[in-house]
Every structure is written in C-alpha cells, then in structure tokens.
C-alpha cells in the first residue's frame, strides 16, 4: 500500500550540501526556541559502553522527534562501538533514520543516519556560534582531527571566514591529513599544535574526541572564548565548567545526563539552574546572546534527534524529486 524510500550514504551525499544542513539546523533551533520542535529525551540501550553486560563496548540511542517547520516526524537509531566494530575497520558511528508522515504514520523513508549525524553535528556548532557572536571571521581551536573535526570545520566555513585554525590530535598524522583536506575551507593558516594547550585559544574551541581525560584546563581558556565539548565524555576540567560565565546547551535533559556535564550533575554540583539558555532560546531571540568579547562560554550541543529528522526530511524530498534510492513496502 505505502512505499518506503531507501537511501544509502551515497544517495544522501549526492543531494545534500553542508549549506543545506546549516540552514536546516538553524531553522530547527529556532523551532526549539519557539516550541514547534518536539524532542523527547533520547533512550539509550547500553551494550557494554558503561555496563558490564553485554560486553560489546557499544551503545545505541533512540532519538525520535517531530519538526514543526517541516511537519515531519522520525527517529534516528544511532550508536557507537569500539571493540569488534573497530577491529573490523568500520567507522565508530552506526545509524539508521526512519521518517514517517506524522498525519497517518506511514513510513516514508529508511536511510543511513551516519553521514547526516556527522554533518549536523558540525552545523550545530556553527549555528550556535552565529547566535553567540557578531564577528564574521573567527579563530578556531580544534581537538580531534577525525571525521567530526572535518565536518565541524566545513560547517563553520559556511557561516564564517576562518582566519586561523589550530588543530590538535593525539595522532599527528591525523592532523597533517586534516590540514591537507581542509585547506579550501580555512582562509587563514591551519596550524598543527604539538601540545594540547596550543589549540585552546580562539573564538571557538571545539572538542570532538573520544577522550575521558578532562584534558582541557580551565587556565588555558581566555575571556572571549566559547568552548564546545562535543564528546560523549568530559573533555574539559571541572574548574572550567564551574567557572564559565555562561553555560548554553541544546537540550537540557540530555546535556545533564550525558557528555561534559554528566559527572558534575550526578555529583549535585551542576543542575538546570546553572544553565543560562538553550541554543533554541538564543536562535528565537528569547534570551540575549552572551558577550563573547569578555565572557567565557561553555556551549554543549550534544545533539538532538530533531536535527537528524530535519536534515533527513530535506534529503528525502530531494531524493524523491531525482528518483534516487530503493523502494520497499513493509506492509
């Protein structure tokens, strides 16, 4: 009765640009602020990431959402696996996204979710910066030269001129490859840092690592810096979190229970009252921007299903117009 469109990573790549993703993420943040985005807290299935059973060093997060400006609903089921997946040489993230028609529930699409995850994660940072600074050109510090480091840089270059970028990775080879790959996206120089501290200066300092080590120190971060810890664990030390002038997040419930704020929240040292605003509130003009001349800002866009659903919806519309992908009737 209903046909479901099937889209591979290649299909998605052929119809989607980072500019599209940045636009969609911007509108969806505004929707969060205006109350037209519905995004329940994600549900985790622990497959050994933190639990001891089963022993697979992985997790899967179910991230459903409704996006008002597109009148679209969907879910991303995404996870990260070390262990066997890493040994097989597969990327850390595994993901599928499902889209339904919110009016009657039929399944409109099943598509790869990993590429969109990487792109929207970059776009979240770029759009958050748009609402935190009036500058048009930025200095960037970047921890992690992998896939996410690339997409962060590409997304920021859609909205800003990057006048300088300093990258640090525990593997210097990864930094060198990053420098080669990203030279068209960065107007100024790409510097390869030999110590973590060298990458800690800039308008935006972005952490996209799998570190559990709190390696970014409070005393490194100068006024006029927004620090973006994007990882699943805590990349900056407790002193910075507790001393930042403002903390801004994408989703209050999720940010208190995962990533940089988790440990301090569980210890009772950070709670909702310590959060200045959501990115959505800044985007919708409901809260004033921080003062990124003087303040040190901690911004955590941990990632919401709404962003995945928004971008996937745009992909589906484009793919249908071009007749791309496979088809299947589940019912």
């Amino acid at each position: 009765m209903f046909e479901t469109v099937l889209l591979s990573q290649k299909d998605i790549e052929s119809v989607l640009t980072m500019k599209d993703v940045v636009d969609a993420v911007d509108k969806t943040f505004q929707g969060f602020g205006e109350g037209t985005t519905i995004n329940p807290t994600k549900v985790g299935l622990d497959l050994g990431e933190t639990a001891s059973y089963p022993p697979y060093q992985g997790f899967m997060n179910a991230m459903p959402a409704y996006v008002g400006w597109l009148d679209s609903a969907g879910i991303k089921w995404a996870g990260g696996f070390l262990g066997e997946r890493k040994k097989m040489g597969l990327p850390y993230i595994t993901s599928l996204t499902l889209l339904i028609d919110p009016k009657i529930g039929n399944f409109r699409a099943v598509m790869d979710g990993a590429l969109i995850t990487n792109m929207r994660t970059g776009a979240q940072t770029a759009v958050a910066m748009k609402y935190m600074t009036s500058k048009k050109s930025l200095k960037i510090g970047l921890y992690g030269a992998g896939m996410q480091g690339h997409t962060q840089t590409m997304a920021i270059s859609e909205l800003f001129d990057i006048e300088e970028l300093t990258v640090y990775d525990i593997y210097p080879e990864a930094s060198r490859k990053f420098k080669e790959d990203m030279k068209d996206y960065v107007k100024g120089e790409i510097k390869i840092a030999s110590t973590p501290e060298e990458a800690s200066k800039g308008d935006a300092v972005i952490c996209v690592t799998q570190s559990k080590d709190k390696f970014v120190k409070n005393e490194w971060i100068e006024p006029g810096t927004a620090l973006f810890p994007m990882g699943s664990y805590q990349e900056c030390d407790n002193e910075f979190i507790l001393n930042a002038d403002k903390i801004i997040v994408d989703h209050i419930g999720q940010c208190l229970h995962r990533g940089a704020l988790k440990e301090l929240n569980e210890a009772g040292r950070i709670d909702e009252s310590n959060l200045y605003a959501t990115i959505g509130e800044l985007a919708a003009g409901k809260k004033p921007s921080p003062d990124l001349e003087k303040e040190r800002v901690l911004c955590i866009p941990i990632g919401t299903g709404a962003m995945d659903v928004a971008v996937a919806t745009i992909v589906l519309e484009r793919a249908k117009a071009k007749g791309l992908g496979g088809k299947f009737s589940f019912v």
């Binding site: 697979y56 899967m60 996870g79 696996f81 262990g83 066997e84 499902l98």
Partner: peptide
C-alpha cells in the same frame, strides 16, 4: 530494526 550487538551493523 535489528543490529548485531557486537558491532552495530
């Protein structure tokens, strides 16, 4: 959806 829990495929 079903995944292989050991590698996420």
């Amino acid at each position: 959806l079903l995944v292989d829990p050991s590698n996420g495929q």
